[in-house]
Design a protein around this nucleic acid. Sequence first.
DNA 1: CCGATCGTTGGATGG
DNA 2: GCCATCCAACGATCG
Length: 537
Amino acid sequence: MSSSLSIHLLHNSLRLHDNPPLYEISTSAAAESMIPLYIITSKSPFSQSDEVNKVNKSRANFCLESLEDFDNSLKAISPTQRLICLQSKDYDTSSPDPDVEYAETLKSFLTQFPDTTDVTIYYERDTSGPILRRWRMVLDEVVAPKDNVSVKLFETNNLHPLDNYLAKSKGNPPNSYGSFCKIFNSLSSPAPCLPTVATLPPPPKLIKGSYDIPKLDDLENVDQTTGGKGSFKGGETEALKRLELTVVKNCDWAATFEKPKTSPNSLNPSTTLLSPYVKHGCISPRLFYHKLSEAYEKSTKPNSSPPVSLHGQLLWREYNYLHGYATPNFDKMVGNPSARQIQWDDDPALLKAWKDAETGFPFIDAIMTQLKETGWIHHLARHMVACFLTRGDLYLSWEEGAKVFEERLVDADWSINNFNWQWLSCTAHFYQYFRCYSPIAFGKKTDPNGDYIRKWIPALAKMPKKYIYEPWEAPLAVQQAASCIVGKDYPNRIVENHTTTSKNNMSRIAESYKLHKEAAAAAAAAAKSKKRKSTSD
DNA sequence: CCGATCGTTGGATGG
DNA sequence: GCCATCCAACGATCG
Protein backbone atom coordinates (compact mmCIF):
# COMPACT_ATOMS: atom_id res chain seq x y z
CA MET A 1 0.00 0.00 0.00
CA SER A 2 1.46 3.33 -0.98
CA SER A 3 0.77 6.57 0.84
CA SER A 4 2.07 10.04 1.28
CA LEU A 5 3.67 11.29 4.42
CA SER A 6 3.57 14.83 5.79
CA ILE A 7 6.03 15.96 8.39
CA HIS A 8 5.76 19.19 10.29
CA LEU A 9 9.30 19.93 11.33
CA LEU A 10 9.05 22.42 14.13
CA HIS A 11 11.80 24.06 16.14
CA ASN A 12 9.52 25.96 18.46
CA SER A 13 6.42 25.64 20.51
CA LEU A 14 3.47 24.18 18.65
CA ARG A 15 1.04 27.05 18.22
CA LEU A 16 -2.39 26.86 16.68
CA HIS A 17 -2.89 30.52 15.77
CA ASP A 18 -1.54 31.78 12.46
CA ASN A 19 0.55 28.71 11.85
CA PRO A 20 0.75 28.29 8.06
CA PRO A 21 2.49 24.88 7.97
CA LEU A 22 0.13 23.44 10.54
CA TYR A 23 -2.86 25.02 8.84
CA GLU A 24 -1.97 23.61 5.49
CA ILE A 25 -1.10 20.18 6.76
CA SER A 26 -4.25 19.94 8.85
CA THR A 27 -6.57 21.13 6.12
CA SER A 28 -5.06 18.72 3.61
CA ALA A 29 -4.92 15.81 6.01
CA ALA A 30 -8.31 14.73 4.76
CA ALA A 31 -6.56 12.59 2.22
CA GLU A 32 -7.00 9.07 3.44
CA SER A 33 -3.48 8.01 2.71
CA MET A 34 -1.78 10.89 4.47
CA ILE A 35 0.05 10.37 7.73
CA PRO A 36 0.70 13.70 9.40
CA LEU A 37 3.55 13.75 11.86
CA TYR A 38 4.37 16.69 14.03
CA ILE A 39 7.99 16.70 15.04
CA ILE A 40 8.95 19.27 17.59
CA THR A 41 12.47 20.18 18.45
CA SER A 42 13.15 22.63 21.14
CA LYS A 43 16.11 23.44 23.32
CA SER A 44 14.96 26.05 25.70
CA PRO A 45 14.03 25.62 29.33
CA PHE A 46 11.28 28.09 28.55
CA SER A 47 9.55 26.07 25.89
CA GLN A 48 10.30 22.90 27.80
CA SER A 49 8.52 24.35 30.79
CA ASP A 50 5.86 22.23 32.40
CA GLU A 51 3.17 24.26 30.73
CA VAL A 52 4.50 23.77 27.23
CA ASN A 53 5.34 20.17 27.81
CA LYS A 54 1.85 19.56 29.07
CA VAL A 55 0.23 21.15 26.05
CA ASN A 56 2.58 19.57 23.55
CA LYS A 57 2.43 16.16 25.13
CA SER A 58 -1.34 16.30 25.12
CA ARG A 59 -1.17 16.55 21.36
CA ALA A 60 1.33 13.80 20.85
CA ASN A 61 1.31 10.09 21.09
CA PHE A 62 5.01 10.04 21.70
CA CYS A 63 6.97 12.66 23.52
CA LEU A 64 10.63 11.89 23.39
CA GLU A 65 13.21 13.66 25.44
CA SER A 66 16.21 12.97 23.25
CA LEU A 67 17.32 11.90 19.83
CA GLU A 68 18.35 8.57 21.32
CA ASP A 69 14.82 7.99 22.54
CA PHE A 70 13.58 8.95 19.13
CA ASP A 71 15.78 6.40 17.49
CA ASN A 72 14.82 3.67 19.93
CA SER A 73 11.16 4.33 19.46
CA LEU A 74 11.04 4.25 15.71
CA LYS A 75 9.92 0.67 15.71
CA ALA A 76 6.90 1.58 17.76
CA ILE A 77 5.50 3.89 15.13
CA SER A 78 2.62 2.80 13.03
CA PRO A 79 0.26 4.60 10.64
CA THR A 80 -2.46 4.67 13.26
CA GLN A 81 -0.30 6.62 15.64
CA ARG A 82 -0.35 9.93 14.02
CA LEU A 83 1.29 12.61 16.12
CA ILE A 84 4.83 12.70 17.28
CA CYS A 85 6.31 15.28 19.56
CA LEU A 86 10.06 15.24 19.71
CA GLN A 87 11.90 17.48 22.05
CA SER A 88 15.59 17.46 21.39
CA LYS A 89 18.23 19.52 23.07
CA ASP A 90 19.90 21.75 20.54
CA TYR A 91 22.94 22.28 22.68
CA ASP A 92 23.48 18.70 23.65
CA THR A 93 27.23 18.72 24.10
CA SER A 94 27.47 14.94 24.21
CA SER A 95 26.96 14.83 20.46
CA PRO A 96 29.91 15.83 18.28
CA ASP A 97 27.53 17.56 15.90
CA PRO A 98 23.88 17.64 16.93
CA ASP A 99 22.85 18.99 13.54
CA VAL A 100 24.41 16.10 11.67
CA GLU A 101 22.89 13.72 14.18
CA TYR A 102 19.52 15.36 13.72
CA ALA A 103 19.63 14.99 9.94
CA GLU A 104 20.79 11.40 10.23
CA THR A 105 17.99 10.60 12.62
CA LEU A 106 15.41 12.14 10.34
CA LYS A 107 16.82 10.21 7.41
CA SER A 108 16.66 6.90 9.22
CA PHE A 109 13.17 7.78 10.39
CA LEU A 110 12.03 8.02 6.78
CA THR A 111 13.28 4.52 6.08
CA GLN A 112 10.53 3.31 8.40
CA PHE A 113 8.05 4.20 5.67
CA PRO A 114 9.34 2.32 2.65
CA ASP A 115 5.97 2.35 0.91
CA THR A 116 5.44 6.08 0.86
CA THR A 117 5.39 7.55 -2.59
CA ASP A 118 5.75 11.15 -1.45
CA VAL A 119 7.16 12.78 1.63
CA THR A 120 6.49 16.46 2.25
CA ILE A 121 8.31 18.39 4.94
CA TYR A 122 6.40 21.45 6.15
CA TYR A 123 8.67 24.00 7.68
CA GLU A 124 8.41 27.52 9.05
CA ARG A 125 11.73 29.04 8.23
CA ASP A 126 13.88 30.69 10.87
CA THR A 127 17.00 32.46 9.66
CA SER A 128 18.75 32.50 13.04
CA GLY A 129 22.25 31.14 12.45
CA PRO A 130 22.13 27.87 14.36
CA ILE A 131 18.57 27.06 13.26
CA LEU A 132 19.38 27.88 9.66
CA ARG A 133 22.42 25.62 9.85
CA ARG A 134 20.31 22.72 11.07
CA TRP A 135 17.76 23.32 8.33
CA ARG A 136 20.45 23.39 5.65
CA MET A 137 21.72 20.10 7.01
CA VAL A 138 18.25 18.64 6.54
CA LEU A 139 18.11 20.00 2.99
CA ASP A 140 21.54 18.58 2.10
CA GLU A 141 21.31 15.26 3.87
CA VAL A 142 17.62 14.37 3.77
CA VAL A 143 15.85 16.26 1.01
CA ALA A 144 18.44 16.50 -1.75
CA PRO A 145 19.42 12.80 -1.97
CA LYS A 146 15.83 11.56 -2.18
CA ASP A 147 13.58 11.98 -5.19
CA ASN A 148 10.37 11.56 -3.27
CA VAL A 149 11.04 14.10 -0.52
CA SER A 150 9.93 17.68 -1.06
CA VAL A 151 9.68 20.78 1.08
CA LYS A 152 6.93 23.29 1.73
CA LEU A 153 8.65 26.31 3.16
CA PHE A 154 6.75 29.06 4.96
CA GLU A 155 8.50 32.33 5.70
CA THR A 156 6.26 33.44 8.49
CA ASN A 157 8.69 33.85 11.35
CA ASN A 158 9.03 37.42 10.12
CA LEU A 159 6.48 39.95 8.91
CA HIS A 160 7.81 39.59 5.37
CA PRO A 161 10.22 37.10 3.83
CA LEU A 162 13.65 38.58 4.51
CA ASP A 163 14.58 38.30 0.86
CA ASN A 164 11.76 40.71 0.05
CA TYR A 165 13.53 43.37 2.07
CA LEU A 166 16.86 42.57 0.47
CA ALA A 167 15.34 42.79 -2.99
CA LYS A 168 14.47 46.40 -2.21
CA SER A 169 18.00 47.26 -1.10
CA LYS A 170 20.15 45.67 -3.78
CA GLY A 171 20.99 42.69 -1.63
CA ASN A 172 22.58 44.66 1.18
CA PRO A 173 20.63 45.31 4.35
CA PRO A 174 20.06 49.01 5.04
CA ASN A 175 22.42 50.30 7.68
CA SER A 176 20.01 52.46 9.53
CA TYR A 177 16.67 51.74 11.08
CA GLY A 178 15.15 54.69 9.24
CA SER A 179 16.12 53.30 5.85
CA PHE A 180 14.76 49.94 6.87
CA CYS A 181 11.43 51.53 7.79
CA LYS A 182 11.24 53.11 4.35
CA ILE A 183 11.65 49.68 2.79
CA PHE A 184 9.08 48.20 5.12
CA ASN A 185 6.60 50.93 4.27
CA SER A 186 7.14 50.43 0.57
CA LEU A 187 5.90 46.85 0.91
CA SER A 188 2.28 45.88 1.29
CA SER A 189 0.91 45.16 4.74
CA PRO A 190 2.15 41.87 6.23
CA ALA A 191 0.07 38.90 5.14
CA PRO A 192 -3.11 38.42 7.13
CA CYS A 193 -3.15 35.75 9.82
CA LEU A 194 -4.57 32.38 9.05
CA PRO A 195 -7.55 30.94 10.93
CA THR A 196 -6.81 29.02 14.09
CA VAL A 197 -6.16 25.39 13.46
CA ALA A 198 -9.08 23.87 15.26
CA THR A 199 -9.20 20.42 13.73
CA LEU A 200 -6.18 18.34 14.38
CA PRO A 201 -6.33 14.62 13.73
CA PRO A 202 -8.12 12.87 16.59
CA PRO A 203 -6.05 11.95 19.62
CA PRO A 204 -4.80 8.40 19.63
CA LYS A 205 -6.48 6.17 22.15
CA LEU A 206 -3.39 5.55 24.18
CA ILE A 207 -3.09 9.19 25.19
CA LYS A 208 -4.94 10.69 28.09
CA GLY A 209 -6.35 14.19 27.95
CA SER A 210 -7.77 16.18 25.10
CA TYR A 211 -6.80 18.88 22.69
CA ASP A 212 -6.95 22.09 24.60
CA ILE A 213 -7.22 24.75 21.98
CA PRO A 214 -7.04 28.21 23.51
CA LYS A 215 -9.86 30.61 22.72
CA LEU A 216 -9.53 34.35 23.04
CA ASP A 217 -12.81 34.73 24.91
CA ASP A 218 -11.73 32.31 27.63
CA LEU A 219 -9.11 34.61 28.96
CA GLU A 220 -8.75 35.96 32.41
CA ASN A 221 -6.42 38.56 33.79
CA VAL A 222 -2.87 37.41 34.16
CA ASP A 223 -0.14 38.59 36.43
CA GLN A 224 2.15 40.85 34.45
CA THR A 225 5.01 40.90 36.87
CA THR A 226 8.22 38.97 36.73
CA GLY A 227 8.50 38.88 40.47
CA GLY A 228 10.51 35.72 40.80
CA LYS A 229 11.56 32.41 39.45
CA GLY A 230 9.14 30.62 37.25
CA SER A 231 6.84 33.54 36.68
CA PHE A 232 6.96 33.03 32.95
CA LYS A 233 4.59 30.33 31.97
CA GLY A 234 5.38 28.86 28.62
CA GLY A 235 3.00 28.14 25.81
CA GLU A 236 0.55 29.69 23.43
CA THR A 237 -2.27 29.99 25.93
CA GLU A 238 -0.20 32.22 28.14
CA ALA A 239 1.03 34.22 25.15
CA LEU A 240 -2.51 34.91 24.03
CA LYS A 241 -3.48 35.92 27.55
CA ARG A 242 -0.70 38.45 27.66
CA LEU A 243 -1.53 39.76 24.22
CA GLU A 244 -5.16 40.12 25.22
CA LEU A 245 -4.28 41.90 28.41
CA THR A 246 -1.65 44.29 27.13
CA VAL A 247 -2.85 45.04 23.60
CA VAL A 248 -6.48 44.13 23.08
CA LYS A 249 -8.01 45.15 26.39
CA ASN A 250 -5.58 47.99 26.94
CA CYS A 251 -5.61 49.54 23.50
CA ASP A 252 -4.90 53.09 24.68
CA TRP A 253 -1.78 51.93 26.49
CA ALA A 254 -0.63 49.91 23.47
CA ALA A 255 -1.37 52.67 20.97
CA THR A 256 0.53 55.33 22.91
CA PHE A 257 3.45 53.12 23.99
CA GLU A 258 6.85 54.80 23.80
CA LYS A 259 9.78 52.55 24.57
CA PRO A 260 12.23 55.17 25.90
CA LYS A 261 9.62 56.22 28.44
CA THR A 262 9.59 52.78 29.99
CA SER A 263 11.96 52.19 32.84
CA PRO A 264 14.80 49.69 33.14
CA ASN A 265 14.42 49.44 36.87
CA SER A 266 10.77 49.67 37.76
CA LEU A 267 9.72 46.85 40.06
CA ASN A 268 6.84 45.91 37.78
CA PRO A 269 7.99 45.71 34.17
CA SER A 270 6.49 48.42 32.02
CA THR A 271 6.59 46.56 28.73
CA THR A 272 4.41 43.79 27.28
CA LEU A 273 6.73 40.90 28.27
CA LEU A 274 5.70 39.18 25.07
CA SER A 275 9.26 38.77 23.77
CA PRO A 276 9.74 35.23 25.15
CA TYR A 277 6.56 34.13 23.43
CA VAL A 278 7.51 35.69 20.12
CA LYS A 279 10.95 34.17 20.31
CA HIS A 280 9.70 30.66 21.06
CA GLY A 281 7.01 30.71 18.43
CA CYS A 282 4.19 30.64 20.97
CA ILE A 283 2.73 33.62 19.20
CA SER A 284 3.02 34.67 15.58
CA PRO A 285 4.67 38.02 14.88
CA ARG A 286 1.98 38.61 12.28
CA LEU A 287 -0.75 38.08 14.84
CA PHE A 288 1.01 40.48 17.18
CA TYR A 289 1.39 43.04 14.39
CA HIS A 290 -2.23 42.92 13.27
CA LYS A 291 -3.60 42.95 16.81
CA LEU A 292 -1.56 46.08 17.36
CA SER A 293 -3.00 47.65 14.21
CA GLU A 294 -6.46 46.97 15.57
CA ALA A 295 -5.54 48.55 18.89
CA TYR A 296 -4.20 51.65 17.12
CA GLU A 297 -7.44 51.84 15.16
CA LYS A 298 -9.61 51.41 18.23
CA SER A 299 -7.79 53.87 20.48
CA THR A 300 -8.88 57.50 20.39
CA LYS A 301 -5.50 58.66 21.67
CA PRO A 302 -2.78 59.87 19.27
CA ASN A 303 -0.77 56.83 18.24
CA SER A 304 2.95 56.58 18.75
CA SER A 305 5.13 55.62 15.78
CA PRO A 306 8.33 53.75 15.04
CA PRO A 307 10.94 53.58 16.40
CA VAL A 308 9.38 54.06 19.83
CA SER A 309 5.97 52.46 19.25
CA LEU A 310 5.10 48.80 19.71
CA HIS A 311 4.93 48.39 15.94
CA GLY A 312 8.37 49.95 16.00
CA GLN A 313 9.59 47.18 18.32
CA LEU A 314 8.45 44.53 15.86
CA LEU A 315 10.19 46.43 13.07
CA TRP A 316 13.39 46.43 15.10
CA ARG A 317 13.06 42.68 15.24
CA GLU A 318 12.76 42.55 11.47
CA TYR A 319 15.73 44.85 11.05
CA ASN A 320 17.87 42.77 13.38
CA TYR A 321 16.85 39.53 11.66
CA LEU A 322 17.75 41.03 8.32
CA HIS A 323 21.29 41.81 9.46
CA GLY A 324 21.63 38.44 11.12
CA TYR A 325 20.57 36.80 7.88
CA ALA A 326 22.73 38.86 5.52
CA THR A 327 25.92 39.09 7.58
CA PRO A 328 28.43 36.22 7.59
CA ASN A 329 29.70 35.22 11.03
CA PHE A 330 27.13 37.50 12.59
CA ASP A 331 27.75 36.11 16.06
CA LYS A 332 31.51 36.70 15.88
CA MET A 333 33.93 39.58 15.50
CA VAL A 334 36.50 37.80 13.33
CA GLY A 335 35.19 37.13 9.87
CA ASN A 336 32.22 39.41 10.35
CA PRO A 337 32.51 42.12 7.68
CA SER A 338 30.30 44.58 9.54
CA ALA A 339 32.14 44.24 12.86
CA ARG A 340 34.90 46.63 13.89
CA GLN A 341 37.93 44.62 14.95
CA ILE A 342 38.71 45.65 18.50
CA GLN A 343 41.42 44.26 20.77
CA TRP A 344 39.22 43.42 23.72
CA ASP A 345 40.89 42.32 26.93
CA ASP A 346 40.70 38.73 28.09
CA ASP A 347 40.15 38.50 31.83
CA PRO A 348 38.14 35.51 33.04
CA ALA A 349 37.98 36.84 36.59
CA LEU A 350 36.35 40.09 35.46
CA LEU A 351 33.96 38.20 33.21
CA LYS A 352 32.99 35.94 36.08
CA ALA A 353 32.37 38.87 38.40
CA TRP A 354 30.08 40.45 35.82
CA LYS A 355 28.24 37.20 35.18
CA ASP A 356 27.86 36.39 38.88
CA ALA A 357 26.64 39.86 39.84
CA GLU A 358 29.74 40.62 41.89
CA THR A 359 31.09 43.75 40.25
CA GLY A 360 30.62 45.92 43.32
CA PHE A 361 28.43 48.30 41.30
CA PRO A 362 24.96 47.89 42.78
CA PHE A 363 23.00 48.76 39.65
CA ILE A 364 25.01 46.33 37.52
CA ASP A 365 24.76 43.59 40.11
CA ALA A 366 21.03 44.11 40.60
CA ILE A 367 20.43 43.76 36.87
CA MET A 368 22.62 40.67 36.61
CA THR A 369 20.80 39.17 39.59
CA GLN A 370 17.40 39.78 38.03
CA LEU A 371 18.68 38.17 34.85
CA LYS A 372 19.96 35.16 36.72
CA GLU A 373 16.81 34.69 38.77
CA THR A 374 14.04 35.51 36.31
CA GLY A 375 15.57 35.26 32.84
CA TRP A 376 14.29 38.67 31.88
CA ILE A 377 15.62 42.23 32.19
CA HIS A 378 14.42 45.44 30.58
CA HIS A 379 15.96 46.47 27.29
CA LEU A 380 17.74 49.48 28.80
CA ALA A 381 19.07 47.34 31.61
CA ARG A 382 20.60 45.17 28.90
CA HIS A 383 22.18 48.31 27.48
CA MET A 384 23.60 49.20 30.84
CA VAL A 385 25.30 45.89 31.58
CA ALA A 386 26.41 45.40 27.96
CA CYS A 387 28.10 48.79 27.89
CA PHE A 388 29.71 48.07 31.25
CA LEU A 389 31.11 44.71 30.11
CA THR A 390 32.51 46.06 26.85
CA ARG A 391 33.48 49.59 25.91
CA GLY A 392 32.35 51.24 29.13
CA ASP A 393 34.35 49.59 31.86
CA LEU A 394 35.64 46.03 31.65
CA TYR A 395 36.66 46.14 27.98
CA LEU A 396 35.82 42.47 27.43
CA SER A 397 34.54 40.98 24.19
CA TRP A 398 30.86 41.41 23.34
CA GLU A 399 30.87 37.78 22.21
CA GLU A 400 31.33 36.69 25.83
CA GLY A 401 28.42 38.85 26.93
CA ALA A 402 26.24 37.57 24.11
CA LYS A 403 26.89 33.99 25.21
CA VAL A 404 25.76 34.75 28.74
CA PHE A 405 22.59 36.43 27.48
CA GLU A 406 21.93 33.55 25.08
CA GLU A 407 22.12 31.16 27.96
CA ARG A 408 20.17 33.14 30.52
CA LEU A 409 17.62 35.30 28.76
CA VAL A 410 14.27 33.63 28.43
CA ASP A 411 13.71 35.61 25.23
CA ALA A 412 17.27 35.23 23.87
CA ASP A 413 17.01 35.53 20.13
CA TRP A 414 20.12 34.91 18.06
CA SER A 415 19.64 37.77 15.60
CA ILE A 416 18.47 40.34 18.10
CA ASN A 417 20.96 39.39 20.79
CA ASN A 418 24.01 39.59 18.56
CA PHE A 419 22.80 42.77 16.90
CA ASN A 420 22.37 44.51 20.21
CA TRP A 421 25.75 43.41 21.56
CA GLN A 422 27.40 44.78 18.45
CA TRP A 423 25.46 47.99 18.86
CA LEU A 424 26.29 48.50 22.52
CA SER A 425 29.95 47.65 22.14
CA CYS A 426 30.26 50.12 19.23
CA THR A 427 31.25 47.22 17.02
CA ALA A 428 28.67 47.87 14.32
CA HIS A 429 25.68 50.11 13.55
CA PHE A 430 26.40 52.48 16.43
CA TYR A 431 29.68 54.31 16.83
CA GLN A 432 29.20 57.16 19.29
CA TYR A 433 31.41 55.63 21.90
CA PHE A 434 31.63 58.88 23.83
CA ARG A 435 28.00 58.30 24.81
CA CYS A 436 28.64 55.99 27.68
CA TYR A 437 26.27 54.67 30.32
CA SER A 438 27.32 55.37 33.88
CA PRO A 439 26.62 52.55 36.34
CA ILE A 440 26.09 55.22 38.98
CA ALA A 441 24.10 57.88 37.14
CA PHE A 442 21.95 55.95 34.68
CA GLY A 443 19.71 54.12 37.12
CA LYS A 444 19.13 57.20 39.25
CA LYS A 445 17.07 58.85 36.53
CA THR A 446 14.19 56.42 36.91
CA ASP A 447 14.84 55.05 40.40
CA PRO A 448 16.52 57.68 42.60
CA ASN A 449 15.70 55.77 45.77
CA GLY A 450 17.32 52.59 44.50
CA ASP A 451 14.31 50.36 45.24
CA TYR A 452 15.26 48.09 42.37
CA ILE A 453 18.70 47.57 43.89
CA ARG A 454 17.21 46.94 47.32
CA LYS A 455 14.93 44.29 45.86
CA TRP A 456 17.60 42.31 44.04
CA ILE A 457 20.51 42.84 46.43
CA PRO A 458 19.17 42.38 49.94
CA ALA A 459 22.59 43.17 51.43
CA LEU A 460 22.09 46.76 50.32
CA ALA A 461 18.48 47.04 51.45
CA LYS A 462 19.25 49.38 54.32
CA MET A 463 21.85 51.52 52.57
CA PRO A 464 20.81 55.19 52.59
CA LYS A 465 19.54 56.60 49.32
CA LYS A 466 22.58 58.86 49.07
CA TYR A 467 24.97 55.90 48.76
CA ILE A 468 22.82 53.18 47.23
CA TYR A 469 24.43 53.52 43.78
CA GLU A 470 27.95 53.91 45.20
CA PRO A 471 28.12 52.29 48.63
CA TRP A 472 31.93 52.53 48.78
CA GLU A 473 31.41 56.26 49.32
CA ALA A 474 29.47 55.65 52.50
CA PRO A 475 31.43 56.39 55.70
CA LEU A 476 32.13 53.28 57.74
CA ALA A 477 29.61 54.31 60.38
CA VAL A 478 26.91 54.52 57.72
CA GLN A 479 27.87 51.10 56.37
CA GLN A 480 27.72 49.67 59.88
CA ALA A 481 24.32 51.22 60.50
CA ALA A 482 23.10 49.67 57.23
CA SER A 483 24.58 46.28 58.19
CA CYS A 484 26.51 46.31 54.96
CA ILE A 485 30.28 46.61 55.06
CA VAL A 486 31.66 47.00 51.56
CA GLY A 487 34.25 44.28 51.00
CA LYS A 488 32.53 41.98 53.48
CA ASP A 489 28.76 42.00 53.00
CA TYR A 490 28.91 43.37 49.48
CA PRO A 491 31.84 43.09 47.02
CA ASN A 492 34.43 45.76 46.43
CA ARG A 493 34.35 47.49 43.06
CA ILE A 494 36.16 45.61 40.32
CA VAL A 495 36.71 48.93 38.56
CA GLU A 496 38.33 51.59 40.70
CA ASN A 497 36.90 54.60 38.91
CA HIS A 498 34.24 54.43 36.23
CA THR A 499 34.88 57.93 34.91
CA THR A 500 38.59 57.58 34.29
CA THR A 501 38.27 53.97 33.12
CA SER A 502 35.59 54.78 30.57
CA LYS A 503 37.56 57.78 29.30
CA ASN A 504 40.59 55.58 28.87
CA ASN A 505 38.50 52.97 27.08
CA MET A 506 37.26 55.63 24.69
CA SER A 507 40.80 56.30 23.58
CA ARG A 508 41.31 52.58 23.05
CA ILE A 509 38.21 52.42 20.85
CA ALA A 510 39.42 55.48 19.00
CA GLU A 511 42.68 53.69 18.32
CA SER A 512 40.84 50.65 16.94
CA TYR A 513 38.71 52.88 14.76
CA LYS A 514 41.82 54.57 13.42
CA LEU A 515 43.30 51.18 12.48
CA HIS A 516 40.00 50.23 10.89
CA LYS A 517 40.01 53.39 8.81
CA GLU A 518 43.58 52.79 7.64
CA ALA A 519 42.84 49.17 6.78
CA ALA A 520 39.71 50.19 4.87
CA ALA A 521 41.64 52.83 2.97
CA ALA A 522 44.39 50.34 2.12
CA ALA A 523 41.82 47.81 0.96
CA ALA A 524 40.10 50.42 -1.19
CA ALA A 525 43.41 51.43 -2.73
CA ALA A 526 44.28 47.81 -3.43
CA ALA A 527 40.90 47.22 -5.04
CA LYS A 528 41.34 50.32 -7.16
CA SER A 529 44.77 49.32 -8.39
CA LYS A 530 43.56 45.81 -9.09
CA LYS A 531 40.67 47.20 -11.08
CA ARG A 532 42.97 49.51 -13.02
CA LYS A 533 45.22 46.56 -13.75
CA SER A 534 42.37 44.35 -14.91
CA THR A 535 40.90 47.04 -17.18
CA SER A 536 44.30 47.73 -18.71
CA ASP A 537 44.83 44.02 -19.40
C1' DC B 1 35.00 68.06 -1.45
C1' DC B 2 32.69 70.20 2.32
C1' DG B 3 29.62 71.12 5.78
C1' DA B 4 25.27 70.11 7.79
C1' DT B 5 22.51 66.72 9.66
C1' DC B 6 21.05 62.75 11.78
C1' DG B 7 21.43 58.48 14.24
C1' DT B 8 15.89 54.11 19.10
C1' DT B 9 16.78 55.77 24.49
C1' DG B 10 24.38 59.61 27.66
C1' DG B 11 26.08 62.87 31.19
C1' DA B 12 26.58 67.17 33.46
C1' DT B 13 24.87 71.54 34.20
C1' DG B 14 21.81 75.35 34.52
C1' DG B 15 17.40 77.51 34.23
C1' DG C 1 10.87 67.42 37.95
C1' DC C 2 11.41 68.91 33.29
C1' DC C 3 13.73 70.86 29.46
C1' DA C 4 17.61 73.08 26.79
C1' DT C 5 22.29 73.28 26.02
C1' DC C 6 26.76 71.90 25.65
C1' DC C 7 30.13 68.31 25.62
C1' DA C 8 32.36 65.90 21.73
C1' DA C 9 37.71 60.85 20.82
C1' DC C 10 31.90 58.89 15.34
C1' DG C 11 30.21 57.67 10.53
C1' DA C 12 26.95 57.44 6.73
C1' DT C 13 24.37 60.29 3.89
C1' DC C 14 22.83 64.13 1.41
C1' DG C 15 22.78 68.63 -0.61
